[in-house]
Design a protein around this nucleic acid. Structure first.
Length: 575
RNA sequence: GCACCCGUAGCUCAGCUGGAUAGAGUAUUGGAUUCCGAAUCCAAAGGUCAGAGGUUCGAAUCCUCUCGGGUGCACCA
């Protein structure tokens, strides 16, 4: 049960899509194809135009050789503002500069540029840090990628539900409460709650080995917690949760991220029995070594899914199953994404397979969106081995460096701290978002803290430059009296880059790959920098020319802020 | 042992469902500011796309194998 295909009308024709639609509509009938089936390609070489259609696969049907077909089509086709030409077996399309500038500069820069009305209900589960532990660089990717995907879906007209599936349940909280009873310090909890809780946890772990009574205490504490009674243990646990959330919220605020639901694993606590009963009624459970499992060999997975331990407690998978079912009942989603590290792929395969075995046809709407892990040069991240970098530390250092850069480059700037925050956080986020999800990344301070080249600050700088010129113009760009022919040739490269953003947005959402938008923005930024370098805007003799260039810069500026906004990155007016 | 992910320039990475001469950034070297912000722009140099087979009119892209790196494999999450 997959989501129904989108109606054609749901796909808007902003930017270059406008011309692509004209091209496919004109070509399709000549080769007996549906317009929607034609995939236009983007030629590598600029001289081959903006779009291209290799004719190899259609030539077979007509009995012609590909170059002959391409040549015949090139002759036969008439498309307004598009010139078709055959180069060997390729049918290439070049868009007339004036028409392109007209269309792109009118579309791009609108808040809804590249938006759609897909109307799907999409759940994005992301971030999901563990209570009482610090957020470290490892949480960066899920948080930033998940938030970006949510924004992309939102832009495409989805009803988006953002869920933070906090790790707030499990036996370790028994330990934590027990540790708190022994050594907890009210003062430390108030000054740095997560640090204090982490230290308690680590100490408990260490002393447990010497003193077995600690293990008993922890077990007892978790049982008190699981009982659901409103006892002292529960109060303590709630307090730890609240204190942790306060800390997490500081990071989310800096990232500009909000959630629709903060639902930790504990939220599904009262649904676990029902879930297990459901699994039983589906006849998929069996006993093995005292534990309750679901065999998945029929689903091609050798490892069974464990849903209940021999001690009778539930597991991660049980809670995820309960959560999925609860969300389906509540939201009837079209798609439900889990932005979680690739190391948990097996877990997701298992839990999806369990649902399939139960005959839940909606299981096909669940999707694990994996990403590669972050490692340090010294090795894998490890809290116990001390190989951690807290997220706060990364952001703070980036902001600190940004501040130094601002002091040096723009000492007159009034709100330096505020601007440095935008730049530093933006650099960190962009760095994470410009790479493919799946690849592992080795955390490298030098790269994360770089502000030159293919970086977030480069795009922010471009935005600020445009703003600076627009301010100095002293008047807004006049779009009612905009003559696109005055800038058509000089802005051609920029318009192409701007014009391709809508497709990048769609593709990024489809592939769950925000990088595609980040790369498109870098091309826009590069073209923009060349543009205002080579085309002076202010003090021109011809006011119509000046106005036309103001329109270009205003469009560039708005598009950058909209595009970076989709990635969750803000732009400073000056920097 | 089995399964999955990754391998493209010195480094970090793009390369779309197979398409035309494999592209950026960075580092290196050289150049650009009487002119809207040099966090910029221009240029040079830099690749046996890990290796070997196969499919195809065409392979960095798909298939198989080998090598190298990473991750996971029932009572943690």
């Amino acid at each position: 049960m997959s989501p129904a295909p989108l109606p054609e009308s749901a796909i808007p024709e902003d930017g270059l899509d406008h011309f692509a639609a004209r091209i496919t509509a004109a070509v399709a009938p000549l080769i007996n194809q549906q317009a929607s089936a034609l995939q236009l390609e983007r030629p590598r070489q600029e001289e081959h135009g903006e779009f291209s259609l290799p004719c190899f696969r259609f030539a077979a049907g007509t009995g012609e050789k590909p170059p002959a077909l391409a040549a015949r089509l090139a002759d036969a086709i008439e498309i307004a503002d598009v010139e078709a030409s055959a180069v060997g077996p390729f049918l290439n399309f070049r868009i007339a500069s004036t028409a392109m500038a007209q269309v792109v500069l009118a579309d791009a820069g609108r808040e809804d540029y590249g938006s759609a009305k897909e109307g799907l209900t999409s759940i994005v589960e992301f971030s999901s840090p563990n209570i009482a532990k610090p957020m470290h660089v490892g949480h960066m990717r899920t948080t930033v990628i998940g938030a970006a995907l949510a924004r992309l879906f939102d832009h495409l007209g989805h009803k988006v539900i953002r869920i933070n599936h906090l790790g707030d349940w499990g036996a370790q909280f028994g330990k934590l409460v027990a540790a708190w009873r022994r050594w907890g310090s009210e003062e430390s909890l108030l000054t740095d709650p997560i640090d204090h809780l982490l230290k308690l946890y680590v100490r408990y772990h260490e002393e447990e080995e010497q003193d077995p009574t600690l293990g008993e205490d922890a077990k007892a504490a978790f049982q008190e917690l699981e009982s659901g009674e409103d006892n002292e243990t529960r109060k303590t646990w709630i307090r730890f949760t609240q204190e942790s959330l306060k800390e997490f919220q500081k990071v989310y605020d800096r990232f500009g991220i909000s959630f629709d639901y903060l639902r930790g694993e504990s939220w599904y606590e009262d649904k676990l029995e029902g879930l297990l009963a459901w699994l039983d009624s589906c006849g998929v459970t069996e006993e093995s070594d005292g534990a309750t499992i679901v065999d998945l060999t029929s689903e091609d997975i050798k490892t069974p899914c464990l849903v209940k331990t021999a001690h009778g407690t539930t597991l991660y998978a049980t809670r995820d199953l309960a959560a999925a079912r609860s969300r389906w009942d509540e939201f009837s989603f079209d798609q439900s994404l889990y932005v979680v590290g690739a190391e948990q792929t097996l877990h997701f395969q298992q839990f999806f397979a369990v649902l399939r075995r139960c005959g839940a046809d909606w299981a096909s709407r669940l999707e694990h969106v994996p990403f590669g892990l972050i490692r340090l040069a010294e090795g894998k991240l490890s809290t116990r081995a001390g190989r951690v970098i807290s997220l706060k530390e990364v952001l703070d250092r980036a902001v600190e460096l940004a501040l130094a850069a601002v002091e040096e480059k723009n000492p007159e700037l009034a709100n330096k701290e505020e601007v440095a925050e935008i730049i530093g956080v933006g650099a960190t986020m962009f760095h994470d978002l410009k790479h493919q999800r799946q690849k592992d990344v080795v955390f490298d301070w030098k790269e994360v803290l770089s502000f030159e080249g293919d970086t977030g600050p480069y795009l922010q700088y471009t935005y600020a430059r445009c703003g600076s010129i627009l301010r100095k113009a002293g008047k807004p760009a006049d779009r009612d009296n905009f003559d696109s022919s005055l800038v058509a040739e000089e802005s051609r490269e920029l318009c192409i880059a701007l014009g391709r953003l809508p497709q990048a947005i769609r593709e990024a959402a489809q592939k769950r790959e925000p990088m595609i938008v980040a790369q498109a923005l870098l091309r826009i930024g590069a073209a923009g920098n060349v543009y205002y370098r080579e085309n002076r805007v202010l003090g021109l003799e011809d006011p119509a020319q000046e106005n036309a260039r103001l329109v270009v810069l205003e469009t560039l500026r708005n598009t950058l802020s909209m595009g970076l906004g989709l990635l969750g990155i803000r732009c400073p007016e000056e920097m």
